[in-house]
């Protein structure tokens, strides 16, 4: 599998975290989960070994979309929902750039839903970090497309009647070649997932559960305890067990995935996670274990990581520049049928 970083020039000397810190004061609310994501990102970047100037961060609108201002690379804070389309243009134009998209649940899944699914469908070589705090933060607390049904907010005083999206399911439905979920509070997991995402060639979607302490505090509290029975870790090639090894995922008599006490099943009955399966059936089934209402259960990790043709690579392969560009264009301008007046 070709790396997502192939073709990007390498830094001549090792870089350090500080070189990825811009001179701008970070302005998220105290306690915002975005700080942890930013720190993990700035910690990861020097480890990738690529030149700093060959990194581009494109964001949409929302709290998380302020991200590019705080990283000392190239970056654009763009339009609500449109970052994937702008990043697509960057990625097609330049194979020598690492292209990141920073987006949130409202930005990516509501106003920008169309661009998200098409970027994933095409498999453009970009890495999308979807900060999911299940709320509109920047506009001060309206329900979002990932908020649980019944959510009481300023725009839904009687409780929202919207059914929430499962971003992982959506991405898999769009035939994404890399789909993962992680959480802001687990820096090690977050970093490892982001590394896998940027190293994947093609479109990578990483859903990051991210706490908004002001408008949706503790939305993910249940997932943060050690050995939480709500967190189902996915590791490629490993049997899927959780809650300190007490629970496991098996295939039930009805053919569907089910959670059973490990003590009740044979070890060979435990589902072994296969993120590289050619079809997305298992990844999709696993995504369905997510309780999008109360988060009483949520698989975390890389759901899918497969190679398939990469849009920008293929698009560039069709394009060539003639040796003598102006002469070739002059011939094209003349066309096949001319007449001369003397």
């Amino acid at each position: 599998m070709s790396s997502g970083l192939a073709g990007i020039p390498l830094a001549l000397e090792p870089l350090n975290r500080k070189e990825f810190v811009s001179d701008q004061e970070v302005r998220w609310c105290p306690g915002c989960g975005d700080y942890a994501v930013l720190a993990a990102f700035q910690g990861l970047m020097p480890e990738l070994g690529i030149k700093r100037e060959n990194t581009v961060i494109i964001s949409g609108i929302g709290c998380s979309s302020r991200f590019p201002y705080y990283v000392d690379t190239y970056g654009m804070h763009s339009i609500h929902g449109r970052a994937p389309s702008i990043a697509t243009g960057v990625a097609i134009a330049r194979p020598d750039l690492a292209v990141w998209v920073m987006t949130g649940d409202g930005d990516a899944l509501s106003i920008g839903g169309n661009h998200l699914i098409h970027a994933l469908r095409r498999n453009v070589n970009i890495t999308i970090m979807l900060f999911n705090n299940r709320i509109y933060g920047l506009t001060k607390g309206q329900f979002s497309p990932t908020s649980e049904a019944g959510k009481v907010t300023k725009s839904s005083p009687a409780g929202s009647v919207d059914h929430p999206f499962n971003p992982v399911t959506l991405a898999l439905g769009a035939e994404a070649s890399f789909v993962a979920r992680t959480i802001d509070s687990d820096r090690k997991h977050l970093t490892s997932v982001l590394r896998a995402a940027i190293e994947h060639r093609g479109a990578s979607l990483v859903e990051i559960y991210q706490n908004c302490p002001i408008f949706n505090d503790d939305a993910f509290a249940g997932l943060k305890e050690v050995d939480s029975p709500a967190v189902i870790p996915l590791v490629h090639g490993e049997p899927i067990t959780f809650a300190g090894g007490q629970l496991g995922v098996v295939r039930g008599a009805d053919g569907r995935l089910a959670v059973k006490p490990v003590s009740d099943v044979a070890a060979s009955d435990l589902i072994v996670h296969d993120a590289q399966a050619k079809d997305a059936t298992l990844a999709f089934e696993l995504s369905q274990l997510t309780d999008t209402q109360d988060l009483s259960a949520s698989p975390i990790g890389v759901f899918r990581d497969v190679a398939r043709p990469v849009f920008d690579d293929e698009a560039r392969n069709q394009v060539s520049m003639p040796a003598d560009r102006e002469a070739a264009l002059q011939r094209l301008i003349a066309g096949p049928d001319t007449w001369t007046i003397v």
Partner: peptide, 15 residues
Amino acid sequence: IAAAGAALGASYAGH
């Protein structure tokens, strides 16, 4: 929208 966005992205990248 994406057509304009991608063109803007390509412009930003030097096309």
